[in-house]
């Protein structure tokens, strides 16, 4: 079974005035078509940079040194030209962000933002066609009054509403891969849970693969088929969600799990900073990948 996303030995360092800082130390991560995979770890462990590499954005940052293989749909993103990488973004893969309201352009109506996204694969799409398709997408994320939302500016909508808009927008071009970087962490816990349910339904229906980034094991349990636990730029445990929860093999995973009851969706898990056994070799729950 070939994977849609197949990351091998991904390494990343930043050149700074003080020398090179290594952030990722050889990550292997794979997502099959239609699979929902979570990448869990504490702040600064290298989750967002991984997403930025998959999108091909960090490769264009001059201070970043990236190596390894990022296979996507049979091609290696690392070998592509900046133009080829840009052609994937927003069409083959898209991303949703932590804070929905500040991730939308404050000077555009929702309709205009949809149009920008939907014209990525088809520049000649008419305004009427954009509006109609956008309304259909909003319908899919259970937004009732689609006309009014399309005419609104992000600041006129609630955070939860903007979150649904962003999900609808991310799926508007039917991408193969959706990257969700701590979606809705900035929102209310109940709103967050509601929109995550919605997103889960939607990606299942569309058959979209998802890389779900989070620091919260509790949220991940609801959402992901499979989990990668990342600690300081290394994957320390990987396996199907039930297996990881039933039998966490790595000391760091156990520490994360112990922190779960104390997280309320917001805030960071209360995990000890360092412990010797956090550097133990990776644990794989067999049979899956």
């Amino acid at each position: 079974m070939t994977a849609l996303l197949d990351i091998r030995d991904l390494r990343l360092g930043f050149r700074t005035l003080a020398g090179q800082i290594d952030v990722l130390h050889g990550i292997d991560l794979a997502i099959r078509a239609g699979e929902q995979v979570a990448l869990v770890g504490e702040s600064g462990s290298g989750k967002s940079v991984t997403a930025r590499i998959i999108l091909g954005l960090l490769q264009e940052t001059r201070s970043a040194r990236v190596s390894g293989r990022v296979g996507f749909d049979g091609r290696d993103v690392m070998m592509m030209s900046p133009k080829e990488r840009a052609a994937l973004r927003g069409i083959e893969m898209s991303m949703i962000f932590q804070d929905p309201t500040s991730s939308l352009n404050p000077t555009f109506t929702i309709e205009r933002q949809f149009a920008e996204v939907m014209r990525r694969p088809d520049r000649k799409l008419t305004r009427a066609a954009c509006r109609e398709r956008a309304a259909r997408m909003l319908d899919e994320v259970s937004i009732p009054d689609t006309g009014r939302v399309l005419d609104a500016y992000p600041f006129q909508l609630s955070g939860g509403m903007n979150q649904r808009v962003m999900i609808a927008m991310a799926l508007a071009n039917n991408p193969k891969l959706l990257l969700a970087d701590e979606p809705g962490t900035a929102l209310d816990v109940s709103v967050q849970a509601q929109t995550l349910d919605l997103m889960r339904d939607l990606v299942t229906r569309h058959g979209t693969s998802v890389l779900f980034i989070s620091h919260n094991m509790g949220v991940v349990r609801e959402f992901a088929d499979r989990i990668y636990v990342i600690y300081r730029g290394r994957i320390v445990e990987e396996g199907p969600t039930p297996a990881v929860f039933a039998d966490p093999g790595h000391a760091y995973t156990r520490a994360l799990l112990k922190a779960v009851p104390r997280i309320t969706g917001r805030g960071l898990p209360d995990v000890p900073e360092v412990s010797d056994d956090f550097f133990d070799p990776m644990v794989r729950h067999g049979g899956t990948s």
Binding site: L55, L57, A86, A87, L88, R89, G90, I91, S94, M95, F97, Q98, D99, S102, S103, L104, N105, P106, E116, V117, R120, L179
Partner: peptide, 14 residues
């Protein structure tokens, strides 16, 4: 530095 710029980049706009 605003998040909507990163979003625009993630969507591959010119």
């Amino acid at each position: 530095d605003k998040p909507y710029i990163e979003m625009a980049q993630a969507y591959g706009f010119f």
